[in-house]
Nucleic acid binder design. Structure first.
Length: 713
RNA sequence: AGCGGGGUGGGGUAGCCAGGAAAUCCCGACGGGCCCAUAACCCGUAGAUCAGUGGUUCAAAUCCACUCCCCGCUACCA
């Protein structure tokens, strides 16, 4: 029987688009691994799906005035589409809202319940009689017992930063209706994680081949002792609890999502018409289970999911390896759905070839530490490595052969260098294999790229352009070897760059897809005489200017910078360094903003001044007071802080710069604003990208002398 | 400030978890070669006290302690 490889990939949460961080973190490595193993002749089963239950989705639905089902349908469709576009070769990408999944989850739940691994326990929680529901912590507001802030949330006080238990709050209110909720006892079901502690410890001892970060993380959790966790929630969006008396509750998302690994395997079996097929992966001792996920997901896969499996059915396979990745950041910031800084898959695929993106994500994969998506680096690696080294080698070889022979020439006499070249292919095959088997994907790619470089070297040394004139046979041999290298490269790159590899395969005259062939094909002979197709360049060069400049200026144009006059200054009631400024913003009316200028300016100094504000910044509550925008101030490397002075421009008038159109958005996210880097120049003028900010009355300058290059925030 | 992750030639990195001849690869710089190829490719040269200090050891980038700096999350960053 063929070796079985099971690949489970983290389930993307269905309340937002996928971004590059998701792909680099788990989908791409999983796909590389899957494609490689299929070529190695192993039976691969790779599954995942959208994670579609839980509170955040219900909140998104409320915000968008629609139903959870709509939200989930929308993102499941998008995720499915994006996975396909990125070339992620799932055997099944499903969702947690299927009947099958519900059935499997309930079965596991009930079994664990009957075995005593799930038990009832009373929990105190706030219940709103008016809304007729239990309130999650974040829907509770009350007076903080520590600092007296009246708007502390159930889980935390924004004023003093203390973590709270909802019961500690005084004057508790329901955030939804404003009514007064009461504490009610609610019965919930708990999963007895603690009962698995010793078993888990034993099991983990056997898993020394895990990545150190995964091992360390898990051991830390175990050290602190495992706590039983509530696995039911007082909401109505989720899987029904198959226990009497829990009709109003649902199974908690994290519990249902991990079970997707099993339920999806079963669903896949049904879909291919052999419903018991999943057993070959799950009850076969020789099958190996791999789980791909990002670091924030580690304990769910190293502790919780194994516990569920152990408790449910001892004969099921536990994870063999969990090569969790770190994070991919965008220029130092983490990719995240909740912040506006990500690069979304739907957008990026409009602009770039999939394989170019896959190449950069692969060569830059956050295998051992966080890495960054840097646009200049993306362009450099695309142009110098993918296009320059790999693409160019393939193209120069195929083009040259096509022009001079039109077909694959025969292999004749070999000299030592030729033999070395053929040996190099074998060697690379081993290196790439070994690396991918160990989930060292970067290493594998690099090994393949080295072969491309060697190919260029060989081609150069052999000078076929000279040979063709007086030794056509010898020239043919050289090209035959080069084409063998090209063929091998297509195989080695197939897991990483599936689309371009397929193209090369066809150019070489093969009719089938490269993804159906065996890895060992990389060493097999080429048939002389096969006609070549007319070659086209595989990859395109990119230019940084086209990519990056519009992106940043786009953000600047969203700003609505205005002149404002300070009418009044007060101390912030709950902060040492903050003022409340009452501003006159002309046509935009009057408003209050919070400003951290107390250490730098006295009240008298500020009062009456004209300043510059970002008027369309998303309002934020800062220590209990809502701030409607923020003022611009400069701070230099010595810590000198200065307001920006718009001269005697009228309140409400616009602050603009030349060359960038003004298209202010209604609400500007703070994260977007942060991307705009304005500085003070040597003449004390406020600038963006070397262009001076000005109003109808003249240039905006720094109120106090600051050093050149002072950052404006 | 709390938690987490890092600091290796100009930039980006590998190696460090299982210490051993002063260190990998890519880009960049400089010099040379080639002209088949998407002004691509090939060869050569320069360039690192492996953040700092102290310790363990016959031996440390690799182990331990402390310090400094950077980044992410959280926060009276607005």
């Amino acid at each position: 029987m063929k070796k079985k490889i099971y690949i489970g990939v983290a389930w993307p949460y269905a309340n937002g688009s996928l971004h590059l961080g998701h792909i680099a973190g788990c989908y791409l490595p999983a796909d590389i691994f899957a494609r490689y193993n299929r070529m190695k002749g192993r039976d691969v089963l790779m599954v995942s799906g959208s994670d579609e239950h839980g509170t955040p989705i219900t909140i998104t639905a409320e915000n968008e005035k629609t139903t959870p089902q709509d939200i989930v349908d929308k993102y499941n469709k998008e995720h499915t589409e994006n996975m396909k576009q990125m070339g992620i070769s799932f055997d099944l990408f499903t969702r947690t809202t299927t009947k099958n999944h519900e059935k499997v989850v309930q079965d596991i739940f009930l079994t664990l319940y009957n075995k005593g691994y799930i038990y009832k326990k009373n929990v105190k929680a706030f219940y709103c009689n008016h809304c007729n529901r239990f309130l999650p912590d974040r829907y509770i507001e009350g007076t903080c017992p520590y600092c007296g802030n009246e708007k502390a949330r159930g889980d935390q006080c924004d004023e003093c930063g203390k973590m709270l238990d909802p019961e500690e709050l005084k004057n508790v209110k329901c955030k939804i209706c404003g009514g007064t909720p009461e504490i009610k006892v609610s019965e919930h079901l708990f999963f007895a994680l603690s009962k698995f502690e010793s078993k888990l410890k034993k099991w983990i001892k056997k898993n020394k081949h895990w990545k150190s970060s995964v091992l360390k993380f898990t051991e830390n959790w175990l050290k602190e002792g495992l706590k039983d966790r509530a696995i039911t929630r007082d909401i109505n969006w989720g899987i029904k609890v198959p226990v009497d008396g829990f009709e109003d509750k649902r199974i908690y998302v994290w519990f249902d999502a991990v079970i997707g690994y099993l339920s999806a395997s079963k669903e896949w079996s049904q879909k291919i018409g052999s419903p018991d097929k999943w057993v070959e992966w799950w009850r076969n001792k020789d099958a190996k289970h791999y789980y791909f996920l990002a670091k924030d997901n580690i304990p769910f896969h190293t502790l919780i999911w194994p516990s569920i499996l152990m408790g449910y059915d001892e004969t099921l396979n536990l994870p063999y390896d969990i090569p969790a990745n770190e994070y991919l950041r965008l220029k130092g910031e983490q990719f995240s759905k909740s912040r506006g800084t990500a690069i979304w898959i739907p957008n990026i695929l409009e602009k770039f070839d999939v394989d170019a993106v896959r190449y950069y994500l692969s060569i830059n994969m956050p295998e051992n530490k966080d890495t960054s998506w840097m646009w200049d680096d993306f362009v450099a690696k695309n142009n110098d490595e993918l296009v320059g080294a790999y693409g160019n080698f393939v193209h120069r070889v195929v083009t040259f052969t096509y022009k001079n022979f039109g077909e694959i020439p025969a292999l004749k006499e070999l000299d030592d260098f030729d033999k070395e070249a053929l040996e190099k292919i074998k060697e690379t095959s081993m290196k790439v294999s070994e690396a991918i088997e160990k989930c060292s994907f970067k290493k594998g790619l690099r090994a393949a790229m080295n072969l491309a470089q060697f190919g260029n070297f060989y081609f150069d040394q052999k000078q076929p352009w000279n040979l063709v004139k007086n030794d056509k046979e010898g020239c043919g041999t050289v090209l035959h070897i080069c084409l063998k290298i090209v063929k091998a490269l297509a195989v080695f790159m197939a897991p990483y760059l599936p689309f371009s590899s397929d193209k090369i395969w066809n150019v070489l005259g093969y009719k089938e897809s490269i993804h159906t062939i065996s890895w060992d094909q990389c060493l097999e002979d080429l048939k002389a005489g096969v006609e070549l197709e007319k070659p086209r360049p595989l990859f395109k060069k990119l230019s940084l200017e086209e990519i990056i400049v519009p992106a940043e200026e786009e953000v600047f144009s969203k700003l609505d910078l205005r002149v404002a006059r300070v009418i009044d200054v007060k101390d912030h009631p709950n902060a040492d360094t903050l003022y409340l400024l009452n501003l006159d913003v002309g046509e935009l009316g009057k408003r209050v903003i919070v400003a951290g200028m107390k250490p730098y300016y006295s009240k008298d100094e500020i009062k009456g001044k004209s300043i510059v504000i970002v008027s369309n910044l998303k309002p934020a509550v800062i220590r209990g007071v809502k701030s409607n925008g923020m003022l611009l101030a400069a701070e230099d490397e010595n810590g000198v802080c200065s307001l920006l002075n718009p001269g005697d421009a009228t309140p409400g008038s616009k602050v603009v710069i030349d060359g960038i159109p003004q298209e202010p958005v209604n609400v500007l996210e703070f994260d977007d604003f942060k991307k705009v880097n304005m500085i003070v120049d040597e003449n004390q003028k406020a600038t963006y990208k070397g262009r001076i900010l000005y109003t109808e009355k003249g240039d905006v300058v720094s109120d106090r002398p600051v050093k050149k290059g002072a950052k404006i925030l």
